[in-house]
């Protein structure tokens, strides 16, 4: 079944999914890829510790999964919540892989040392430490934090994506921020300047 491109562009995500479900519409899938691939790539890059190649593969796999599991989509619910739920589950599976965890930890150590020796500017240095503390978070804390402060999802949407309650999402955000702040506290420029004064 051939569909006119104008019709595809005008349809919302859920209507496109219905087309995929009912007619195996390839153009509809391409349109969804066009809309969400960049956002998903960014999410995967953050979740997979900047492993861009792997993130690209994950995006491909995700859209193949959409075609395979299209019957699981509920048209009454939002598409982007559903697609991020799949993405979140893919990351969970990846985190269970010890090989991936080892690579990310090693890669992180190299970057951290290299950057420290280069005397980066304060902002870059802070961002580097922020990245480190983010990577040190537990998987569920990291997911919630990224979805909230990097992908800018609402609390309810995060609850839908992670398949948890609103209270759990708030709790995870609170504790994730606390843990990161604890790690970053010693590198706070204000504290650092105080240390210099004391010395």
């Amino acid at each position: 079944m051939k569909l006119h491109p104008i019709h595809i562009n005008q349809k919302n995500d859920e209507e496109l999914m219905v087309l995929i479900m009912d007619h195996h519409s390839h153009p509809a899938l391409i349109e969804l890829h066009k809309r969400y691939s960049k956002k998903l790539l960014g999410y995967f890059i953050k979740m997979l510790n900047k492993d861009i190649d792997k993130a690209q593969d994950f995006v491909q796999d995700l859209f193949l999964k959409i075609m395979e599991k299209k019957h699981l989509f509920d048209p009454e619910k939002k598409f982007y919540t559903w697609i991020f739920t799949i993405a979140n589950n893919m990351c969970k599976t990846a985190y269970r892989n010890p090989f991936l965890q080892r690579i990310s930890e090693d890669g992180y150590e190299i970057n951290s040392k290299a950057s420290l020796s280069d005397n980066l500017a304060e902002k870059e240095f802070f961002n580097l430490l922020l990245e480190k503390s983010l990577n040190n978070l537990e998987e569920h804390h990291k997911t919630t934090f990224i979805l909230r402060f990097m992908e800018h999802f609402s609390l309810q949407e995060i609850a839908d994506i992670t398949e948890t309650s609103l209270g759990t999402v708030k709790s995870r955000l609170f504790y994730a921020t606390q843990k990161m702040a604890k790690e970053l506290k010693e590198y706070n420029p204000k504290f650092e300047s105080n240390l210099f004064k004391l010395n």
Partner: peptide
């Protein structure tokens, strides 16, 4: 500090990477 963590975290990852074309 906590407020900065929340606001600056969106800047720590590159946003200009283009995803590959879909290969179905």
């Amino acid at each position: 500090l906590q407020r900065r963590i929340m606001s600056d975290s969106s800047e720590i990852f590159p946003e200009n990477i283009t995803p590959h074309q879909l290969q179905t």
